[in-house]
Computed example of a mutant assay.
Amino acid sequence: MSAIPSSTPGTPWAPQPAAVQLVRSQVPHGIRTLTVREDLVGWVLRGRKRLVSPGGGMAFERGRVFCIPRATQWDVLNDPPPGGHYEARVMAFAPQTIERFHARFGQYAGVPAVQGGAGTDADPAFAATFDHACAALSDPEASEAMREHRALEVLLLLAERGLVFAPVQSLGWADRVHRLVGQRTHVDWTVDTLAQAFHLSASSLQRRLAEESTTASRCVREARLLTAMALLQGSELQVSEIAVRCGYQSHSRFSAAFRQRFGYAPTHLRP
């Protein structure tokens, strides 16, 4: 999920309080080795979601809510019901929102933070709160204060059920690059243009990414392909248009990169 671009120099990755995505698919599909970079709350409306890690796995059926903390890694499998399609609504919380939650609701500081993942039921109370938040976050006319208020309501409801995301530490450089590229995936990002956006030299950015065992090109590729996956799941755009939006002028190169990353062609999600 991509962040909203910021107009503040030096903070190009600053997002809105939370971002919402509708995920739909008529075919079973998986995402291998997905690193979760923001705290996520999702509601399975149809079908079944499975999350698998070396430490085990979890399954969420229709009507279940999943809470996945940032900085975790999973193999994700989305299974439609027989004759139907998989559908889920996902809300990704900006780090600033998590920090504001802890600042305002310190009484939940003693609640153990969600570690590998957790779930709860999408009962009427959750459905109403989640729906109100999704409506505000998707409304371009809603004020920033209202968007934040609705996002915090979701976090507060979950906290009352014992589900709290941990306070946020400083963003790593790989996360910063992912956020920046995710805002404008069509841009021809290079080490020089990335470094300029962060007011660094190219060598300094490369060194900081190397300390996190990654590179600028790897971060750019991952951000583009994950954005492509989100567009394939949540929009009716043609595959060729998604390729261009994600920085690939060649449809064949996009398909090859997508297949290498996910194990199937992008057309697999468009039967």
Rank of each mutant, 00 (worst) to 15 (best):
A125G: 12
A230W: 04
V114C: 06
M1D: 03
F165K: 00
A145S: 10
I242E: 02
S53Y: 08
N78S: 13
T267A: 11
Q96G: 10
R70Y: 01
Q16W: 03
A195H: 04
H85E: 14
L180T: 15
C134V: 07
S203A: 15
R270I: 04
A243D: 09
F254P: 02
Q238R: 12
G57F: 10
P140W: 03
A142W: 01
A92P: 08
V36K: 05
D121F: 14
V23E: 07
G263F: 04
L137Q: 02
G42T: 05
F254N: 03
V41K: 00
G119D: 09
T72D: 00
V164I: 03
Q206T: 14
T190R: 10
P81A: 07
D188P: 15
L22Q: 07
P15W: 00
P95S: 00
L171A: 11
C67V: 12
V90M: 05
C246S: 08
S203D: 14
V168G: 02
E212W: 08
G116K: 08
Q238V: 09
Q249A: 15
R224M: 02
P95K: 00
R32G: 11
Q107H: 14
M58F: 07
F130I: 02
E99R: 11
L158R: 02
G162E: 00
G55I: 02
K49W: 13
G162M: 05
R32V: 06
D139H: 00
E61F: 08
F130N: 01
L77T: 14
M229T: 08
L45W: 12
D79G: 06
A19S: 11
M146A: 13
P5Q: 01
L225G: 03
Q183I: 15
L45Q: 14
S217D: 15
A197M: 10
R253Y: 13
S6M: 03
W189G: 05
M91W: 05
P12D: 02
R50W: 04
E99D: 15
A3P: 14
E38K: 12
E160T: 07
Q16I: 05
I98H: 02
L225K: 00
V23W: 10
W13G: 07
M229S: 11
V90A: 04
R147I: 00
A135T: 11
C246I: 07
G84F: 07
G182C: 10
W43T: 08
V181W: 13
G172F: 06
E144V: 09
Q107S: 13
A166F: 06
R245G: 15
R261M: 05
S204H: 15
V114L: 08
T35N: 10
P112D: 03
G247N: 12
A135D: 09
I242K: 05
Y86H: 08
W43V: 06
V52A: 08
G162R: 05
Y264G: 04
E211T: 10
H29D: 04
R245T: 07
T214H: 09
N78T: 12
S240K: 14
H186C: 13
V220D: 04
R48C: 11
V181K: 07
G106W: 13
S201E: 09
R270H: 05
I98M: 04
A71Y: 06
G234Q: 03
V76D: 01
